[in-house]
Write a protein that binds this DNA or RNA. Sequence first.
RNA 1: GAGGGGAUAACGAAGUGGUCAAACGUGAUGGGUUUAGGACCCAUUGGCUUAGUGCCUUCCGGGGUUCGAAUCCUCGUCCCCUCACCA
Length: 897
Amino acid sequence: MEEVDFNKIAAKWQKKWEEKKIFKVKVDSKKKKYYCLEMYPYPSGQGLHMGHVRNYAMGDSYARYKRMRGFNVLYPMGYDAFGMPAENAAIKNKINPRKWTEDNMALMKSQQKLLGLSYDWDRELASCNPEYYKWNQWIFLKLLERGLAYKKKSPVNWCEDCGTVLANEQVEDGACWRCKNPVSEKELEQWFFKITNYADELLKGLDDVKDWAERVKTMQRNWIGKSEGTEIFFPIEKSKEAIPAFTTRPDTVFSVTFIALAPEHPLVEKVTKGTKYEKEAKKFVEKVKRESVIDRINEEKEKEGFFTGKYAINPASGERIQIWIANFAVMDYGTGAVMCDAHDKRDFRFAKKYDIPLKVVIKPANVKKFRVEDLKEAHTDDGIMINSDQFNGMHNRKALPKISAWLVKNNKGKKVVNFKLRDWLISRQRYWGTPIPVINCKKCGIVGIPEKDLPVKLPPPEKVKFTGEGNPLESSEEFVNVKCPKCKSAATRETDTMDTFVDSSWYFFRYCSPKEDKKPFDDEVEYWMPVDQYIGGIEHAILHLLYARFFTKALRDIGLTTVDEPFSNLLNQGMVLKDGMVMSKSKGNIVDPREIIDKYGADTARLFILFVALPEKEFEWSDKGAEGSYRLLKRVYYLATEKPKYKKTVDNKDKHILSKTHQTIKQVTESYEELKPSVAIGKIIELVNHIYKYREASVNKKVYEEAVKNLTLLIAPFAPHLAEEVWEKLGNKKMVSLESWPEYDQSRIDKEAEFADELVHNVLSDVEKIIELAGIKEPKKITLIIAADWKYTLLKTLVTAMKDTRDTKAVIGTCMDERKVKAYAKYAVKIIQALLKDNSKIPKILLEEKKELESYKAAIETIEKEYGTKAEIISEKETENAKAKQALPGKPAIVVE
RNA sequence: GAGGGGAUAACGAAGUGGUCAAACGUGAUGGGUUUAGGACCCAUUGGCUUAGUGCCUUCCGGGGUUCGAAUCCUCGUCCCCUCACCA
């Protein structure tokens, strides 16, 4: 086999594709659209890693496939170009962050081009360009108008030494990642998006996106964390105030013997003020607050509490209950106050630890005497209500809504729906992001920048100071000191920038009309959106996908689109491992895609990475495996370029290879549709193996060419460069990328017929033996009862069993679904005709009655039409009778009369 | 604690009721080709066997449903992931 220079081939075709701009698309209402999208990458400076290659190999092959199927395919690429690493490079190495980012993008793009990805590069975007982030600002202002963007005080991770806010990821073991000093929480004014307004819709929408992996949907559901419950008011003793506490288990209200307040709870101070507990309480709160950041990672944190000395009243039982401050209560969830009882594990242990009285209200149904003193652990099972006045004797799950209603009726509580989802904190005290387009005016307050003044551009990096302390934007007086757009008096510009998740929450809309300069995007989105196939890492299962869904709904409400859900199908690709670990620099186990491309070419890299595992699964990288894919490509090249010996005639071998070819088209197409490229490639390899064997002897030219032609088309989405080259060598003028996907011809797929022949042959020889044994000269009548879903091997067994009987009736089983019923009926007819040595006789076919009756109806029609025979459905009982007659318990048999 | 996903031959990995001793690839063994190596080609790769063929034991373990189970149900074991003081 001659050496093929795959890199040369790749370069040749990449150039041709680019020159002819064959992947450029525009709206075409006559064609069906298909929007295939990969999560746009962050240009990190390392260039592409294997994860990227996997992502793009997946997306590109799918985009190419859909294109060949006649879709108008939108397949764009861009860059998530804002973010911390650029700024850190500026701080550490005094590098211009814009240049740093642009260089990285250029590097990344050059590598993407080497892979031969079929993007419409005219739609490329980068979030750090003013033409893009202008619309971040525009959208922000729209959200501000609608009250969906707002400012409020919020605790942030604060490093006193560096004088800056830290992202959660920058807090390592409770200390600043840079200076290693402890991080504290600080209340700062922050910008938020009101994603909670959409909590319910975001939750419901998950039911509409059917083709998302269940685990992703579950993760989002958990994150949104809807729970319906009751907020119960616990009046504070000798006070007019009450403590509201959220619960999903109001049935335990009579059991509540103490309340736990979060340390941050505003009532903590009120309750303890002026008492002897005040000092101690403060100490405790301080301690917990400090720990909250540090111990976040700690798994089994000791539950700690502090008694405030105050009491509240249980609104159900009227009993006095203690008010505690406890570290397990979080201000963030519910009301920040937990009603605690004997039916919760954590509460129970806490009460035991601090010797707080407990009371049970639910007992097991079969226990008479149930006392709290006897319990070692909380009783968390369902049971019968006790100690609960009028609710005694009820099952607790039945009592639950009744108690809730009773509390509401008596103004002791209200029904509430609680979400875990918090509003989205979008402000960052950073330079390299979209400036939040508002001005803080002493007179007018927060004033949005007028639309005509957008974009608010970042000052050039030379004009700001990257010291690593504070927000660099604050160092630019030019940027900060402005006039209020309303009252024209001196004001200051907001220096916070936006979270980069804002950029990525709508970029897929922008791709639809990337040049639009009056709006974020125009009506073309109505043609292209939603994204039909979105591909990216599982790490974005919650945040990015949730934010993007939120943005879509918000943009819809602004009136920019009618789309509700942005991504119809979602594929979360698995990770690429090496030596059982994630590839990373620190572990030193990186396989650079460039090496693979240099050595074997882009097609091999793409093919292997798709072949080695299903896209969702993680897989172990192996160089040897890549060689296998390389071999396959060489074999395909060989098949197409080295002619076999030709002959004029067509024999069974030719028929068989045609059958195999069409079968492969069918299987590969199905596997593509199911997003199983590894299976598709497996089938292609099988075809290649078959063609190899087939061409050992001389072959029919037409048949051979058809096989190779289809093979080339099938492999084109995976190995596009090779396919183009081979396609050209086969004498085609049009590029294979522009060709249509092959259609399979069902009539050519005669595997079933082959099977039938074999079946008939085998049964004949066996039945002949039986007839001989039974001493029958000429069988006169044969009935076939197609009873269940039997396969040939069983049939054989029956035939064998028949050797011991003198009876003369035949019973053959078949199958459940229509296709199989038909197939088996066909064999049955053939067998009987052959046995009777009379092709004119049409046997009667009986089908056993089963639950799946419907699926038989079509089969019966076909049988009747094709064989001119009567097909009947008989009851299972009759089959039983048939079985009984054969004296073969539990197993019917073939009987010849 | 809650939720999700897994376990298939030496390895990776297909296969979700019958054409299943289980695709495909690696690896291994034998043979061919080659000056040698490499590359390439062919065969074998659970066991026992035949001229095709056939039989037996297999898809983490136990039990079940079925004429029939790698596939469905059930109980268990082990592994992975996500969220988690959520009231």
